[in-house]
């Protein structure tokens, strides 16, 4: 009886804290979404309405009619996908080398990789611009892929460590006895076993690229090549604050990652966790 009561109290406490947590994270999104379907006068009314009183899609119409939003979406997706692929390749190769082969100096190399985060991207902005300009990559989506991989890969290497450490060496040995070479073992045996981890870093790289703003704002010149964050910053506008338009833009920018995360979000979280459990 008492244990039941304690159990009840405990689970009540758990649900309450989960609720608070989700409100902290999710309520602001509810607020922008509902704002985006309110009429302009209701948006800036002095008494905010929790549930929209006026339903309108005018801000979305306005947004889609007057800006190249679908184009920004496409650009962001292309850049994020390429960043993801390249990061996955570079990071898994490096992680395999560092965590499986443990050659002399591997830990040192790992530290070097992490320490690249010490250099402010602000510091790199000007020289990077000059460098990318020399190779004709200003206003190219590739420029952003290149820098985004640099931001994503070091941490991705670390995220993979638990997975690579978890694969039993016996498996590789058995395969090696069968006459398979190192590379074959890596590709056929080890990498597939670390698939959840690779899914995690893929998502991580995608998100890192998806959210990047500063370099995209400087390295991209033409409207046709803008990413979502830069396109959105453009409609924030300096002259007028059209909250309806902005909230619609914010909602539409959130939506694709919402869908993506709805589909693969579990892989990200479970992937990280799976590596840890094994």
């Amino acid at each position: 009886m008492t244990t039941d009561l304690a159990g009840l109290r405990r689970s009540l406490g758990v649900y309450l804290s989960v609720a608070v947590l989700l409100i902290v994270v999710i309520a602001p999104f509810y607020w922008i979404f509902t704002g985006s379907i309110k009429a302009p006068q209701e948006i800036i009314a002095q008494v905010p309405t929790l549930i929209p009183q006026s339903l309108t899609l005018e801000h979305y119409d306005h947004l889609l009619a007057s800006s190249a939003f679908p184009r920004y979406l496409l650009n962001s997706t292309i850049i994020a996908a390429l960043t993801m692929v390249i990061t996955v390749v570079l990071a898994s190769l490096a992680a395999y080398g560092i965590y499986r082969l443990r050659f002399p100096g591997s830990q040192f190399l790992f530290k070097i990789i992490l320490v690249t985060y010490a250099f402010p991207s602000i510091l790199l902005l000007v020289p990077l611009y000059g460098m990318l300009s020399q190779v004709g990559l200003i206003d190219s989506l590739w420029a952003l892929v290149i820098v985004n991989v640099t931001f994503a890969a070091p941490f991705a290497v670390w995220m993979l460590q638990a997975f690579f450490r978890a694969v039993p060496y016996e498996l590789e040995e058995a395969a090696a006895l069968d006459g398979a070479g190192r590379l074959r073992v890596m590709l056929r045996i080890t990498l597939p076993l670390t698939a959840p981890g690779i899914a995690s870093i893929a998502i991580y790289a995608f998100i890192t690229s998806w959210t990047e703003y500063m370099l995209a704002s400087v390295l991209i010149i033409s409207d046709a090549n803008r990413t979502l964050p830069v396109g959105l910053a453009g409609i924030i506008g300096q002259y007028q604050v059209d909250w309806g338009l902005l909230l619609a833009g914010a909602t539409l920018t959130t939506l694709p990652v919402l869908i993506l995360f709805g589909l693969v979000g579990r892989n990200f979280v479970d992937g990280l966790t799976a590596g840890a459990i094994k």
Binding site: L21, L22, V25, I26, P28, F29, I207, W210, T211, E212, Y213, L228, P229, V230, L232, A233, I236, A250, T253, T254, V257, L258, F261, G262, G265, R266, F268, V269
Partner: peptide
């Protein structure tokens, strides 16, 4: 566990 991460997956501008 999935949706708690929402604030991290949206761009800074948002």
């Amino acid at each position: 566990r999935v949706w708690v991460i929402l604030s991290w997956i949206v761009p800074t501008v948002v």
